[in-house]
Amino acid sequence: MYTDQTFDDVRCEWGERGVAALAPASDVIIIVDVLSFSTCVAVATGRGAVVYPFAGEGAAAFTQAHDALLAAPGRPREGYSLSPHSLLTLPDGARLVLPSPNGATVTLAARRAAPNAVILAGCLRNAAAVAGAAAGLGRRVAVIAAGERWPGDGSLRPAVEDVAGAGAIIAQLPGTRSVEAQAAVAVFEAARGDLPGFLRRAGSGRELIERGFAEDLALAAELNADACAPRLMADGAYAWRR
């Protein structure tokens, strides 16, 4: 029978089902989607924008209702998208709707499963800031690696870059760690000497390079480049209040 790791302070799981398992006993939930939702959120909020995670149909109507900009699905060459590089020019105060099949979907699942928990978006770029914020917000922390989707049936594909991102955060959190959390730290420690190379060798990284988005890997690999700890606010947007 599955155990929800409740004997430990810091726990780690995968995707929507991981949220469902860990959320009820969590004060803080950290969503990690390194390539690229969480990295996009860190880049955008670190520059003064707010980000509305979105999943499903009706993005255009949602965007209009929130007087926001809509990021294009995928990574088109023009405009804002799930490419972190495309968000470097977001103006301070921008409101961005960011559709995502992974990080946004898991964020919204966490909000449904634990409406009273604090939800943060973490990645390699803001690992130290997110860990510091989480440590001050509660003892029981769930770190959720979002993962990717297999083509065809859309089932969860564990993504090693998300394990490394989770480990970078967990390594700086106080309290006891579940075995799953310890494993994430071990992956991060093995990768930290060459994070750019690690991301380039990962399956998701190779895919982005083949599509011409190597610059996104470079941004995602910059450990602690951003001092923001984006928090999901009551209006459903991630924001960072300096």
Rank of each mutant, 00 (worst) to 15 (best):
G18H: 02
A20C: 00
A25Q: 14
V28C: 04
V32R: 11
V32H: 14
V34P: 06
S36Y: 06
S38A: 08
S38K: 04
S38E: 03
T39P: 10
A42K: 09
V43S: 09
T45D: 05
A55N: 11
E57M: 03
A60W: 00
A65P: 00
D67L: 02
A72I: 00
P73T: 07
P84G: 05
D92T: 15
D92Y: 15
A94V: 05
R95Q: 05
R95W: 03
V97Q: 01
V97F: 06
L98M: 08
S100Q: 08
N102Q: 04
A104K: 14
A110P: 03
R112V: 08
I119L: 07
A121V: 02
L124I: 07
A129P: 04
A129C: 02
A131K: 03
G132I: 08
A134T: 00
A135C: 08
A146L: 02
E148K: 06
R149W: 01
D153N: 15
L156Q: 04
R157P: 02
A159L: 01
G165R: 07
A166H: 05
A171N: 14
V179K: 15
V179F: 14
A181S: 11
A186G: 10
A186S: 14
F188Y: 15
R192I: 00
F198T: 06
A202E: 11
A202G: 11
S204M: 01
I209F: 11
R211V: 00
R211M: 00
G212M: 05
F213P: 07
E215Y: 10
D216W: 03
L223N: 11
A227Y: 01
C228E: 12
P230E: 15
A234S: 13
A234M: 12
Y238L: 08
